[in-house]
Design a protein around this nucleic acid. Structure first.
Lengths: 157, 157
DNA sequence: GTGATATCATACTAAACATATAGGAAAATA
DNA sequence: TATTTTCCTATATGTTTAGTATGATATCAC
């Protein structure tokens, strides 16, 4: 029942792109530094976002990435699904290749369909803009509450 | 974002135990046949349910397993968690060994906490008894709708 | 057009996890 | 004591995760 790093990092990239949007393309290198994730790994993740039309890319000098819409027009659900695929908790409820032959007699099938629906509804109910707002509040609170010069160089999970 | 076979099979075993409860111990062999899962694999899964106190076991002749409570006293959540562990979608929101050092500045943390809550609430809102009821309805509908003698020996997903 | 800088494409790898299968020990009952 | 059941542990196999590495290709400033 875990979300992989690809989905999580993709979401963080999208938030980063939204927060640093100034009309120019944003280099992946800068995102990598800010998010403390290696450039090479992000390079491998972000094409999924480009192909899904969630971001626009430009090569070469002064190239980079930018959002294709306003932050309030993205749901977290579509971002995560772009990387994780369907969020169905079990394979047998998708139409896909493998429908289970026990479907008609399975007591738990509808339960899993319900879980799927609940997860999608939650994720589609939150937008990128929502995450940005919360983030501003959190960091502001946080800066008040601790000593300013604290160094942290431990590894990101 | 998947539930493993262990969690799914455990849930099906619990429903099976509930539906065939007649005060006697139920042999795992019978569950294996009904559920079309190998005995050896179920043998490996069910000890988690015993250790968690969800079922009671008895060895030897006429031995087997039975529920320790009524079906309406089990939530699906506790059954799944007994096998999958915490249903936290990301590791960094559990208190456990690895809290993320970026926690205070992370824009997505609260989102994941919300997802965790939603998943738990859904799963804890459904009982074993609920699954049984639905099952009766489903199979009854189903038996009306198809020819009776249809054979299915394909593999369970 | 050349050099610098960026994305893009692909291959590789180590470790963990999923999904079982198999053999036999221990206990309970008839 | 024989049979039947749970219980424990080892092994196998394939897939996924989470990266690292190498180099090609496009774009722009000069």
């Amino acid at each position: 029942m875990k979300i992989s790093t690809k989905g999580r990092y993709a979401l963080r990239m999208m938030v980063d792109l939204a927060e640093h949007d100034d009309g120019e393309y944003i280099r992946l290198k800068d995102i990598a530094i800010r998010q403390e994730i290696t450039l090479k790994y992000l390079e491998q993740i972000i094409p999924q976002l480009t192909r899904s039309g969630l971001v626009r890319s430009c090569r070469g000098n002064n190239g980079g990435y930018m959002l294709t819409r306003g932050p309030e027009e993205y749901t977290v659900g579509e971002i995560i699904r772009a990387l994780e695929g369907s969020l169905a908790p079990v394979a047998c409820i998708t139409d896909n290749p493998n429908r289970c032959p026990r479907q008609e007699e399975c007591a738990t099938l509808e339960f899993w369909e319900g879980l799927w629906r609940v997860v999608n509804e939650y994720m589609d109910g939150v937008t990128l803009a929502d995450l940005m707002e919360k983030h501003v509040c959190r960091t502001r609170q946080d800066e008040e509450g601790r000593d300013a010069g604290s160094v942290r160089d431990t590894k990101t999970i």
